[in-house]
Design a protein around this nucleic acid. Structure first.
Lengths: 216, 216
DNA sequence: ACCTGAACACCGTTCAAGT
DNA sequence: ACCTGAACACCGTTCAAGT
């Protein structure tokens, strides 16, 4: 474990416990047991620190090639491999709620992120998606996964506060006809694990439809 | 135009010109021509200011019900309506690059966001999606739209720097077989407008597949 | 009701200095 | 090579005071 990794892990643990806003050069330095200025030779700047934190997580998203888990994955059909990546991303976002938002703004130059893209490329090729469409479909699929995962982590799917619920129904009668039609369905609680699996099935339907459309 | 709206618009224009990090109570106050503390009675806090900025944009995403544009939309087939929402969201993110990331973390209690959800509900119902699946499909579709739009705005799809490109190809031969197979395709530049339209077509394929699966 | 000014406890980062 | 300490130009927010 290098000194840099030690610093990144300290920053990650602060972010996990107290949120990304609690990560400051001063708080990280204190956790490492050093002066804020001592971090700079190792991480460069605050922005580079955030990049490094994300890179370290992405390195852990999928197992290193050569490990038993990696070869288990290699033998699976394309849909299993895609699902494993999606579930891994969701798990990562659940464990590190601050990370999801960063994935959009940091161009993901981290080596780990390119391996993830490559695995999706491979799954789509095996599914029969035409080469010309694979890069676009990779962006489509990863946008959905990231969007879903960031929505869950960020609270976009979460329960509204009571005031907002009341406001919602006061408004519903005239301006929100869709909500009114779905009133009974919207009452029941949601099983988010089941929803994610159902979404993955529907994404698979989409991929198969694209393959059919291209195939003939 | 209330004083609050004047403050929100000042903050939005600062964010558009200099990024969301440039929005501070001090910078907004200066633009309004007032002391930082004078903002508090109107916007409450920095966090509420960000919520207000987002709410103001969402109010502009779709036309008020009753306007000509809104009734034009009402007469269209479901796919056109869905496309109009998606294109509106993309346009909003292009004009206000800072806004996309906030949409994940602010539970979107703004009245504007509920109208958008309702329009998607309506489109999915008209498409023939079973009521029980509509809320989930709304989250799936909006997650994709948000994910795509945030990726474009945040630079996740953007061109890598030259160093990273070189690193990529050094790595490609052994660990990135997918990239190697797609080498020729990955060279050509991407038409992002066309990609978004192609994605919308594929999302429509998915919705139709779900309808078929449920229908019999 | 609306605004000001001073103050407090924070930031990221530079610079000169230590060992 | 690695770390420290003081300093600079910023933050969001509280509080007492003004009109």
């Amino acid at each position: 474990v290098t000194r840099q990794e030690e610093i990144l892990d300290a920053a990650i643990s602060i972010a996990d416990e107290s949120g990304i806003d609690a990560v400051s050069m001063r708080s990280v330095a204190e956790q490492v047991g050093v002066t804020p200025m001592a971090l700079y030779p190792h991480v460069g700047s605050k922005a580079a620190l955030l990049d490094g934190m994300l890179g370290r997580l992405l390195g852990q998203l999928l197992p290193e090639s050569g490990t038993p888990v990696a070869s288990d994955l290699a033998g699976q059909p394309w849909l299993e491999r895609l699902g494993a990546i999606a579930r891994g991303a969701r798990q990562l976002a659940q464990r590190h709620r601050w990370a999801a938002a960063l994935l959009f703004t940091r161009p993901a130059a981290a080596p780990g992120s390119m391996r993830v893209v490559d695995l999706i490329f491979g799954a789509l090729l095996d599914a029969g998606v035409p080469s010309a469409d694979v890069p676009r479909m990779e962006r489509l699929v990863s946008s959905f996964i990231l969007g879903h995962v960031a929505s869950e982590a960020g609270g976009r799917f979460g329960p509204l506060t009571q005031d907002v619920r009341d406001q919602r129904w006061a408004q519903a009668r005239d301006e929100l006809p869709g909500h009114e039609k779905l009133a009974s369905t919207l009452e029941s609680p949601v099983d988010w694990d089941a929803e994610f699996e159902a979404d993955l099935r529907d994404v698979a339907l989409m991929i198969e439809a694209v393959v059919r459309g291209a195939g003939g």
